[in-house]
């Protein structure tokens, strides 16, 4: 049973998040170990397993990049691993530019606005790739799936940049 089936939803990239959250809570109400605190050891063990599985399913379906990865894997697309070299040189150049930009924020005169500007750029570029990926996944054919997985990889780069921005923010404002 895959996670889409587990949550009783259609096998699609577009997920109704509030519905997903309701289903998640309903499922946990049925299987959470707290509901089996007085049951047999057998049932307690199963409850922990099922509950962990539902937690994992929820996290996978809730986060768009995880969901994309999961869905493409279900379709049999082999996703390139992180070490594999990247063919899109202009994208790599862009990533290096963005990285440099983040590194310079610390030294700018107006840190707040430099940070906000950088975040805005990251969000915009993320959105462009995200919408492309979404359309490609929804097209659901071998060609588009391959393109989607390429975009997913790019989005992962942006995701990492965002984490760096957060770290930067923390280090700048946590006196």
């Amino acid at each position: 049973m895959n996670y889409f089936q587990l949550f009783g939803i259609e096998l699609s990239f577009d997920v109704d998040l509030s519905q997903l959250s309701q289903t998640y809570q309903t499922l946990q109400k049925a299987v959470h170990p707290d509901k089996f605190a007085h049951a047999s050891a057998q049932e307690q063990l199963l409850a922990v397993q099922k509950s962990a599985q539902i937690n994992d399913g929820y996290q996978t379906l809730k986060q768009p990049l995880e969901r994309a990865k999961y869905l493409l894997t279900l379709r049999g697309v082999v996703l390139p691993d992180e070490q594999q070299s990247f063919s899109d040189n202009s994208f790599l150049m862009r990533q290096m530019e963005l990285r440099e930009r983040l590194a310079e924020i610390r030294f700018s005169d107006d840190i707040d606005s430099a940070l906000a500007d950088a975040q805005k750029v990251l969000t915009q570029e993320y959105q462009v790739h995200f919408e492309q990926m979404r359309a490609q996944i929804n097209a659901n054919n071998a060609d588009e799936n391959a393109k989607a997985s390429e975009n997913l990889r790019k989005l992962t780069f942006y995701h990492k940049l965002n984490i760096e921005v957060e770290r930067l923010e923390e280090s700048l404002f946590d006196d």
Binding site: L6, G8, T23, T26, L27, K29, A30, V31, E43, K50
Partner: peptide, 11 residues
């Protein structure tokens, strides 16, 4: 079976 049935019942 009980666990699976309670999941489908919940859904």
């Amino acid at each position: 079976r009980r666990m699976d049935s309670s999941i489908s019942k919940a859904l």
